[in-house]
Write a protein that binds this DNA or RNA. Structure first.
Lengths: 367, 367
DNA sequence: TTGAAAGCGCTAACAA
DNA sequence: TTGTTAGCGCTTTCAA
């Protein structure tokens, strides 16, 4: 492994000054150098395998082309990967690199991590949360532009992007209404976060738009995982007048609802339709029938956050007018929604027809 | 936002030279400076909020304290987050930061990403794959130590860490054998990668150790997702003499196997025991009963890779004796394994007892 | 025990 | 159109 080739090596090999090399290799100073010299220098640089040292140019230009991504829980949710990827792609396309830190929710650690990022002269910071929340930007983040990812700034000082919870829930509930359901249960979750309230509002809104009266009994608040979905679904389905459609706060709960339905002998979607929010693909695609669910656009939010951050870095004026974006969430239709039984053309045939749907595609292989 | 405070500001405010500031703040040059001066400088530095510019010190020291993490698919698997987190933690603890790039499997892009990392003067590179494979280190990675993560070097030139596939499979199968099963199906996957062969060997090994004869009919190769699990399980369970235990290549397939079992009216674990590999928690914890599965230690592998990489960076001699580590995989016991029916104490009571197990914990709430 | 000065590799102001 | 030179902020010889 030979020593790294620097700009002086190129300058010597090409027989020009380092200045000329620098300019010949930069696309900003086009006019500066003779096209012929330029070609020659580029050729020599390529031959030597020269690549500028970003530490040195960063020091000189006061620009590191480094971005910090500060997260509280990268690993705990599979979506986080999508957010990080979106951020990374958007950064790389514009010439930046992402440095990742994850505090696991430890504030003291986060503070040190941020200061480390700042020591590395990051040009900006994306402050990401694993679920949508409202917060104040930690005071140690200073001197560089910041954008919030999956969070909103209580002070309204910095730009942010998060899912439009209300609209997402309305979409999911409307899907059931459009299929003909009038009695729709909502397995909400029991933590006091924006999503809980936003999605409840969306549920209300969808019902109101369809002229369906709100029934308190049809809403239950459960832990936001599979067991909560099971519990909530069992509770609602054992009502004297059970719902024919179920909207779950998120996909793991929907998985629980599937299990509950099966344990009660209910077929999906014939006896019970289900929608949800997440598009947690291992669940939504894995379940049979597939789950109709509203996708949270994590990749796009990651992209947007970095793209906005770079805008503010390149034009500091932009930072003075922060933008608060609530991202639209598209529905992904699979097989968990059908008209309620009461609307079915022939109720007697229903039982047999429905059985087909509960068997996997490969069932023909069986005797 | 005031201008950033540099070492000169501290030197002025403390009334000493920048040299003294540098030494007072560094723990390497302990003896160099008078304890009193040292305290004074530290106090002033803290008051001004001084933190050294890592770009500048990196340039001077030829050490960036930056590591590159090159991955082919961060977002596609939830485990990736664990690997990244393990890498990040290990790096941060020793004073390094991770820069993340993800090529999505695009080689041309990966080549450019690596060269960008190198331009940033990373001190080393972790080359990660989303699933265990054997490969040659791309030639553009040069001049810095490399460690492979979830991969092995065909040339044996660099250190690597990956799961011990054979042992993992043996553990999973042995769990069934220990419960009393003798007829054990294996829903393998159908791609030609180390895991496929390694786990098949592990299956063989476990059977051999227990003196169980291998039966070709009990092994099926399916796509490595939920539908493959369904297909494979249905196929094996419809055999004239069906297995009483099922080992699945990975958790999504196990989910499919659960679905297949339910559609055939089989209870887990009473009528069918299942083990798997992954500990994909949303599945393994979410299923009812919970899935007994062998965990792939992604976090630990990420930690090990970075830790080994830093060892090689700090002591280049180490790089000359690469280490190839196959990580042990611990089993996580939940509720999907029980003795086969033939061994049950009273077969007549079994049906009712088993029914309890198919209902969720909250079922008591119901009438 | 401390300070002056050189230099890491690069870019840009200034001069030619 | 090209070259000389200063300097980004730091660490470390070397000299005092």
């Amino acid at each position: 492994m030979m020593a790294k080739v620097g700009i002086r090596d190129v300058s010597k090999a090409a027989g020009v000054s380092v200045t000329t090399v620098s300019h010949a290799l930069s696309d900003v100073h086009q006019a500066r150098v003779n096209p012929e010299t330029r070609r020659h220098v580029q050729e020599v640089a390529a031959r030597l395998g020269y690549a500028p040292n970003r530490l040195a140019s960063g020091l000189r230009n006061q620009r590191s082309y480094l971005l910090g991504l500060v997260s509280d829980e990268i690993a705990s949710t599979p979506f986080a990967g999508e957010m990080v990827l979106g951020a990374q792609d958007a950064a790389y396309e514009r010439g930046w690199l992402i440095m990742l830190v994850d505090s696991g929710g430890n504030r003291a650690l986060e503070e040190r991590q941020v200061s480390t990022l700042l020591q590395h002269q990051v040009d900006g910071i994306v402050y990401a949360k694993m679920y949508h929340q409202r917060l104040t930007v930690p005071r140690e983040i200073t001197g560089v532009p910041v954008v919030l990812l999956d969070a909103e700034d209580l002070d309204g000082k910095v730009s942010s992007v998060a899912p439009d919870e209300l609209a997402a829930a309305r979409t999911a509930v409307k899907e059931l209404i459009d299929a003909g359901h009038r009695r729709i249960g909502f397995v909400n979750q029991n933590e006091d976060i924006p999503a809980t309230h936003g999605r409840l509002q969306g549920y209300h809104a969808a019902l109101a738009e369809a002229g369906i009266e709100y029934d308190d009994d049809l809403v239950t608040f459960e832990v936001p995982d599979v067991s909560g979905g099971r519990d909530g679904a069992l509770k609602l389905l054992s009502l004297p007048e059970p719902p024919t459609g179920l909207f779950c706060f998120r996909d793991p709960q929907a998985l629980g609802a599937y299990e509950a339905a099966h344990s009660l002998g209910l077929r999906i979607p014939d006896d019970l339709s289900i929608t949800s929010i997440d598009d947690f693909q291992i669940i939504s695609e894995g379940l049979w029938p597939g789950l109709t669910t509203v996708a949270l656009p994590h990749y796009e939010m990651g992209r947007w956050a970095v793209s906005r951050l770079l805008d503010e870095i390149e034009d500091p004026e932009k930072a003075k007018a922060p933008e608060r974006l609530l991202f639209e969430c598209p529905i992904v239709r699979r097989g968990s929604v059908a008209p309620p039984r009461s609307l079915s053309p022939s109720d007697s045939e229903q039982k047999d027809a429905s059985r087909m749907n509960t068997l996997p595609p490969a069932s023909e292989e069986l005797a």
